Amino acid sequence: MPTMGRLIEAILFGALAWYTTTLIAPLFPEGTNLGYFHEVNTVFGLIAGWSIAGPRAGTGYVAAFSYGLTALVAMVVMALFFNSFVVMIGQSLLKRYDGPGEAVTDVFALFVEHAAMIMTPQILATLLIGGFVGGLITEFFGRRFS
């Protein structure tokens, strides 16, 4: 059921995903076609905010840190996995793999590679602060409008 907590958390995590993606985009090599990178990551932010953190709004400000961080980790894992999967599909269409097992294994290698790429202090701080603040704001609205 739609609640104010779900709506606010979806908007906040969507915005956090969009902003973080703008910080990540320059880390890719020059000339990399990012396609719908911003939009896809924003959708994962919306999903994480709506389905993970939003339903927990109204459970207390201490819990807000927990569900803000949980939604943040879920958003990052979903985005990393999906984007790694898309890169693998592109490489498999170029026949870079000897078989499907190698392609599936490479998804996880790409996941780790992309995760290492975004491990900069600016991006980590943005994500952590955004997750905690998003949880607190959601808790505020969840208590007021539930």
Rank of each mutant, 00 (worst) to 15 (best):
I89P: 02
F145H: 14
F108S: 10
F81Q: 05
A109M: 11
G131Q: 09
M88S: 02
I52M: 03
Y36I: 00
A53I: 01
D106P: 02
L128W: 04
P26A: 14
M1G: 15
L124R: 02
A109V: 14
V107K: 02
L72E: 09
V77K: 03
M88V: 00
I137H: 06
A25W: 00
G142P: 10
I24M: 06
L72S: 13
G131S: 09
Q91N: 15
I137R: 04
P29H: 04
G54Q: 06
P29I: 03
A109G: 14
M78I: 07
A71M: 06
V112H: 09
T42S: 13
I24A: 04
G68R: 06
V86L: 13
V62T: 06
P100A: 11
L46K: 04
T126Y: 10
Y97P: 02
A48G: 10
T3K: 04
L12R: 09
I118L: 08
I8S: 15
D106A: 13
G35M: 10
E102N: 11
G49E: 11
T20R: 11
E30D: 15
I11F: 13
M88K: 01
S92Y: 05
G35D: 12
P29C: 01
F132N: 02
P121G: 13
S66Q: 13
G90E: 10
R96G: 01
I89K: 00
A10R: 00
V62A: 07
L27I: 08
G54L: 09
E139G: 12
T70S: 14
L69S: 14
L46R: 06
H114A: 07
L72R: 06
L27Q: 11
G58F: 09
A116K: 15
I118D: 07
A115L: 13
L34W: 00
G45R: 03
N83C: 04
P121W: 14
I52T: 03
L46H: 05
A74R: 05
Y97A: 02
G31V: 04
G54R: 08
L94D: 03
I123V: 14
V77E: 04
F85T: 13
S146L: 15
F141C: 14
V112L: 15
E102A: 15
M117W: 09
